[in-house]
């Protein structure tokens, strides 16, 4: 096409300006800020080199937050992929009412995280919450969902599972529907049991979709902030403080801009590693002729 590069550049300009102002500049600025000490405000910022980073690595709160983030990401991703897979396998057939069941299962995913959090905070309430009321109804002892340090992070996973399992469910359902029917029919003729077909045909062919779902969910879980902020505030103690919450506390409550920026840089590096895996996955998918 003989249209000039100038035209292309003109068309890209608005997007490039916004990108430069809102992403490139902040990224660079954040990197710079991570190298200064801002105890007395930005005006007296002093160059401290890598001090913020060495401090972070020795800070038990930072390590705790990093550990909580990893634990949350692993638990959330694994449970969401497993539950999404179970739902997709169940729903991947004709049955009466399917047109109503699928959108109902998707509904939690479109809700605002704040609405989700509002409902679950009420459900977790020790005295009057729905969950403990249900436990009492079957004569089980009530549980301190959000105030037991050993349980609080799991409670957060439970909320995340409810909200985002629909997402993995839809990805895996699409994957199941892309498996050719005749493969199953042929295996059935040969006398393979449903369980055997699941292990030898369905799951191996579903691996790319399983990986994609796991990757997308781990990227999102790694960012978690809203739910922690509104459900536990990072507590009890430090039990549910994730890296985003740690950054929020340092940057927007203690105004320690240098340390908060260093935390941000560390998070970007970790995210970058995840991005490399993701990009590799996409590029490989394209050379295989697309998903």
């Amino acid at each position: 096409m003989p249209t000039s590069r100038l035209t292309a550049l003109l068309l890209l300009t608005p997007a490039l300006v916004l990108f430069a102002l809102l992403t490139l500049y902040p990224l660079g600025r954040g990197l710079l800020l991570s190298l200064v000490n801002t105890d007395y405000g930005l005006a007296d910022a002093a160059w401290v080199g890598a001090d913020n980073y060495t401090f972070l690595l020795s800070d038990p709160f930072f390590r705790g937050a990093a550990w909580n983030t990893v634990a949350f990401t692993l638990m959330a991703t694994l449970s969401e992929v497993a539950f999404g897979l179970a739902l997709a396998l169940l729903v991947n057939a004709r049955f009466p009412g399917r047109w109503l069941v699928v959108p109902s299962l998707v509904a939690p995913f479109v809700l605002s995280t704040m609405v989700v959090t509002a409902v679950w905070r009420a459900w977790f309430h020790y005295d009057f919450g729905f969950l403990n009321n249900a436990l009492r109804a079957v004569a089980l002892p009530p549980v301190e969902w959000l105030f037991d340090p050993d349980l609080a992070l799991v409670s957060l996973v439970l909320v995340d599972l409810w909200q985002t399992a629909p997402f993995t469910f839809l990805i895996l359902l699409a994957g199941l529907q892309s498996i050719p029917r005749d493969l199953h029919e042929a295996a059935q003729v040969e006398g393979a049991s449903p369980v055997r077909r699941l292990w030898t045909i369905t799951l191996p062919l579903l691996v790319p979709h399983l990986l994609l779902a796991a990757l997308l969910r781990s990227i999102e879980s790694f960012k978690i902030f809203d739910k922690v902020y509104a459900l536990t505030g990072g507590g009890p103690g430090q039990a549910t403080e994730t890296l985003s919450m740690y950054l929020y506390r340092l940057g927007f409550q203690y105004f320690d801009i240098g340390l908060a920026s260093a935390t941000a840089v560390v998070m970007i590096v970790i995210a970058g590693l995840l991005a490399a895996v993701y990009a590799w996955h996409i590029v490989r998918g394209q050379s295989d002729g697309g998903r």
Partner: peptide
Amino acid sequence: FLIFVLVVKLSPPLVLAIPLYQV
């Protein structure tokens, strides 16, 4: 462009928040 989309998608909102506040 692909890398840019990925970096943005991967960056937690909090990571850009301090510089964006100043912008």
